[in-house]
Amino acid sequence: MNSSRSSAVVSIIAAIFIFLFVYTAVSKLMNMPSFKNTLHASSLIGSRAGMMAWVVLAAEWVSALLLIYPHFRIAGFSLALLLMLSFTVYIAAMLLTASRLPCSCGGILKSLSWKQHFFLNIFLTALAYWAFTLEFRKIRSNAMIK
């Protein structure tokens, strides 16, 4: 993949994650009690729900902000990848262990089942990883040119 096409792909993926994180963060902020209750209802999180809610929100906002600026995109993709991996592992653990599954996250994603959400997260994780590797190669090739 040549560098201009690679840059375009990275920009598009960055925009997708900016949209995703801003949308889900705003949805969670607008319905914070419900989000905390959902985390609290999860046997994996339980009493840490309050803290986890704010940690997740902060991470989403920070990742979206980092992805806006090309200089910080590598950090943004790293955080996005970490977030998506965490969400995917959480959903997988809930699907495997929970006897009752609480309602899923905010907004339009609420209409997805847990399994559908799991496959969507796998796709988004792969997308984040792809963008991270493209950006990493770009930075490395720029460093070698210098």
Binding site: S11, I12, A14, A15, I16, I18, F19, L20, F21, V22, Y23, V26, A64, L67, I68
Partner: peptide, 10 residues
């Protein structure tokens, strides 16, 4: 693209 994504998301 980033600004557009934010506006669309909000």
């Amino acid at each position: 693209l980033s600004i557009l994504a934010i506006i669309l998301a909000v």
